[in-house]
Measured scan of single mutants.
Amino acid sequence: LQAFIKTLTGKTFTVEMEPSDTIENLKAKIQDKEGIPPDQQRLIFAGKQLEDGRTLSDYNIQKESTLHLVL
């Protein structure tokens, strides 16, 4: 599935991932794409901060969901 990552500066980019991917995997993909170390990334979806060990499906993240990236 493709999801949108929106930063506080208003920049939006897309990442490809599977519902079974962990938040940790997602942070690694963001690092590959944007060069931001995972330990500096905080991802917010539906008002909740996402925990590394959980999966996208745990948070009911669907295709074309928008996640907010806070540094």
Rank of each mutant, 00 (worst) to 15 (best):
T22W: 04
F45L: 08
N25Y: 12
T9E: 11
N60S: 07
E24N: 08
G35A: 04
S65H: 10
R54H: 12
L67E: 01
Q62M: 12
A28P: 00
V15G: 00
K29H: 05
T12F: 09
T14K: 09
L56C: 03
K29L: 09
T9P: 04
G47L: 03
K27Y: 02
E64C: 09
G10W: 04
D32C: 07
E34R: 08
Q2H: 12
P19I: 11
G53P: 06
N60K: 08
Q40A: 09
D52M: 05
P37A: 09
A46S: 08
G10F: 04
G10T: 03
I44K: 05
T12A: 07
E16I: 12
I30T: 00
M17D: 00
I30M: 01
I36F: 12
K63Y: 10
A3F: 15
L67I: 15
A3L: 15
E18Y: 14
L71K: 05
Q62D: 13
Q40Y: 10
K48I: 15
L8K: 11
L69M: 07
A28M: 14
D39R: 10
E34M: 15
D32T: 11
G35W: 02
L43V: 05
A46I: 06
Q31N: 09
L67P: 03
Q2A: 08
T55G: 03
I23R: 02
V70P: 00
Y59S: 02
G35Q: 04
L26F: 03
R54Y: 12
S65R: 07
R42Q: 11
Q2N: 10
T55I: 08
A46M: 14
I36K: 02
D21Q: 07
L43N: 00
L50M: 10
E18V: 11
Q2S: 10
F4Y: 12
A3P: 07
G35D: 05
M17Y: 15
K11P: 04
A28G: 08
F13D: 00
D52I: 05
L1V: 12
E64A: 11
S65C: 06
L26Q: 00
V15H: 01
P38N: 06
E16A: 09
D32M: 14
K48H: 10
L1M: 11
K33Y: 08
K33L: 14
K29R: 10
A46C: 09
I23N: 00
